[in-house]
Amino acid sequence: MSDMKPTLPISIVALLVVAFLQVPVLVVVLTSFSETSYLTIPPQGWTLKWFAEVLSDPVYLRAIWNSVILAVSSTLLSLVLGVAAAYALFRKAIPGSEAITALLMAPLIVPSVVIGVAMLQYVTLVGLRGSFLVLIVAHVVITVPYILRSALASLSGLDVSVEEAARVLGADGFTAFRLVTLPLIKPGLVAGALFAFVTSMENVPVTIFLASARQTTLPILIFSSVEMGVNPGVAAISTLLIIATVIVLLLAERWAGFHKFV
């Protein structure tokens, strides 16, 4: 009897599609090592000069630094605010918790560019334009839904009586959360934090309206520089990002079984 396994043609199509997903990545990596400023197949000559160029360029270094600081601080802030909120929502101790959840998840639904222009007008109005703190808060708004989603999902997979057991055994509310609940939802939180970090790291539509020239982030820099055409320096910096992504993804998979949380 047929057990509905994929047939050979379907498998081949599927593998081609998966390969298609990797093509731009491969092309970028090859370009970054190629002598010529445009890529040919096969590439002509190998070099590391684009890496050297980019990594000695203060504009790029500054953008990398800005991006990392922004992503780390907004992820941490989202994590603290989001986990606290998720815990309260999960316990359903508050009336209207569903409406509140919907509100907190709304930044996922409203187009980022709309959030960007709304915040641009707002910070201009209150006179905070150019403040790095504004940028961090803006990134909290767009990253917190990911934390909230994974925290709520992890909490709902938890046996409530485990935390109750800790309480009965003499732990106060915070101790029970710290010793029992938190370790049990940690894999989900790692995944959520990773999503938040990646979202912050790649954001253009909100950042571009709020960041001053000195606050330019890496994605903004790449986004703006390609208007001048293909630049191997961009390929080099992209390759660095690709390598970082691969490492982080593999680590997350090993620590937390990341693919289960996507």
């Binding site: 046996d159 485990v162 009965v168 029992v180 049990l184």
Partner: peptide, 13 residues
Amino acid sequence: IGLVFQSYALFPH
């Protein structure tokens, strides 16, 4: 108090 749960509620970690 000591409480024994139906689901055991052991700390899995």
